[in-house]
Measured scan of single mutants.
Amino acid sequence: MEVRTIKVFTTVDNINLHTQVVDMSMTYGQQFGPTYLDGADVTKIKPHNSHEGKTFYVLPNDDTLRVEAFEYYHTTDPSFLGRYMSALNHTKKWKYPQVNGLTSIKWADNNCYLATALLTLQQIELKFNPPALQDAYYRARAGEAANFCALILAYCNKTVGELGDVRETMSYLFQHANLDSCKRVLNVVCKTCGQQQTTLKGVEAVMYMGTLSYEQFKKGVQIPCTCGKQATKYLVQQESPFVMMSAPPAQYELKHGTFTCASEYTGNYQCGHYKHITSKETLYCIDGALLTKSSEYKGPITDVFYKENSYTTTIK
């Protein structure tokens, strides 16, 4: 009895394709271990004539594949690729409408935090270190965002349907971005203890939790000093293409032309909904596939993004 075979390709990165001759009487799992086709788990399936010449994702289970996976995804987590594939199996079914010149995501599976993050990423200057993220990001900007969303979920250790947080998501993504040249110098002034300067680099240099107003941050924000008295913390120097200011959701007025974009969060910790506000020729609110415009805006804002380049204080 002759062994019926077909020729397929296996890959971990969709760049390096490895030619395989597979036995049609055995499952993919018996031949390769966990195997995925377009995100779908085909591990328990036997090869079919229609699979001839198709590319299958496999887990990096030998040295060659491990090197290829690390170079593309910059992670050695053995569960990463499987999590990416199972997320992709959902995100490829989502709709990605162009809204006001940006790629958004039609609401499904509690994905409003991903839509808000995706919209924000198209408006701030950011370059990702893992080629996987950078490639998928370019495709997302062009309207094909399924891979990018699935990668975000995998890097953030999230599953489809789980509630997510924009600030946490951005923080994970910033860790995989090139923020080497970003720098922030802060000064804390206390009447009792004097003053202390701190220099922050990388992710810490672009994120701040405690106030939404970048102007206020430049002037000074009140913080408790270690001595128990009130101290003032203010920005001395900022070198970065953008800054992200966050605070627990509270009524906040966004003035046209003073910011790049913002995240609105309605609801409580267990259950809520994100919308995205962007400042173009007027203010726009993007909620999944829905767009509304207004000249002014007041609502429960939790993150505001500002364009920056270089700032030095005039406070002496």
Rank of each mutant, 00 (worst) to 15 (best):
R141L: 12
L153T: 01
T192R: 13
Q195Y: 10
D23Q: 13
K218M: 02
V236M: 09
K7W: 11
C227H: 05
C182W: 01
C271F: 11
E52I: 12
V21Y: 13
F128N: 02
Y274R: 00
Y84S: 08
L151G: 02
T5Q: 10
K92R: 14
H74N: 10
F70Y: 10
A142Q: 13
E281M: 00
S104N: 05
L59P: 04
T211Y: 00
H51A: 07
Y28M: 04
Q134K: 10
K316N: 15
D63H: 11
G288L: 03
C227G: 02
T232E: 04
C156G: 03
S171D: 04
T260R: 05
K93N: 13
W107V: 06
Q222Y: 07
M207D: 05
I105K: 04
F148P: 07
L200R: 05
L65G: 11
G257K: 04
A108K: 08
K255C: 08
S246F: 00
A132P: 04
L17A: 15
M209S: 11
Y72G: 05
T5V: 10
I6H: 07
F305K: 00
K229M: 14
I315D: 15
H276E: 01
A136G: 08
H18W: 10
V166W: 03
P78Q: 11
F259V: 06
T302G: 02
L102P: 04
N49P: 13
Y234D: 08
K127M: 10
R141C: 14
Q31G: 05
F128G: 02
K158C: 03
G29N: 08
I45A: 15
P224G: 07
L17K: 14
R66C: 08
Q230V: 14
N178I: 04
F9L: 11
T211W: 01
N89S: 14
Y96M: 07
I277F: 11
M207L: 04
M26P: 06
L179Y: 00
L179P: 09
L118Q: 00
G39C: 14
Q20C: 14
Q237I: 08
S181P: 09
H273A: 06
D303N: 03
E168P: 01
T76F: 09
N111K: 05
D62S: 13
V188S: 04
G228A: 04
N157T: 03
Q122E: 02
N89Q: 05
L59H: 15
Y96R: 06
D303C: 01
L151I: 06
A117D: 03
G161T: 01
T211S: 08
H90K: 15
K218I: 03
K127P: 10
F80R: 06
N49C: 15
L37K: 12
Q122M: 04
D180M: 10
L153Q: 03
E168G: 03
E308W: 00
Q251E: 15
V160C: 09
P47I: 03
T64A: 13
T199M: 04
L102F: 09
S263K: 01
I152T: 12
L102Y: 06
S171F: 15
E239Q: 12
R141I: 14
K93V: 11
A115M: 07
G164S: 05
K293C: 12
Y113K: 06
M24L: 13
E308Y: 00
E144H: 12
Y252M: 03
T278E: 00
G164V: 10
F217S: 02
T192W: 02
F70A: 10
S295V: 08
E52Q: 12
V12S: 08
N14L: 10
K95I: 15
I15L: 06
T313Y: 14
L290T: 12
H48R: 12
T5S: 11
G194C: 14
G267R: 06
M244V: 08
G33A: 06
F217D: 02
G220L: 03
C285E: 08
V22R: 04
D165E: 10
T260K: 00
M209I: 12
M244C: 06
T76E: 11
L186R: 08
K201S: 12
D77M: 06
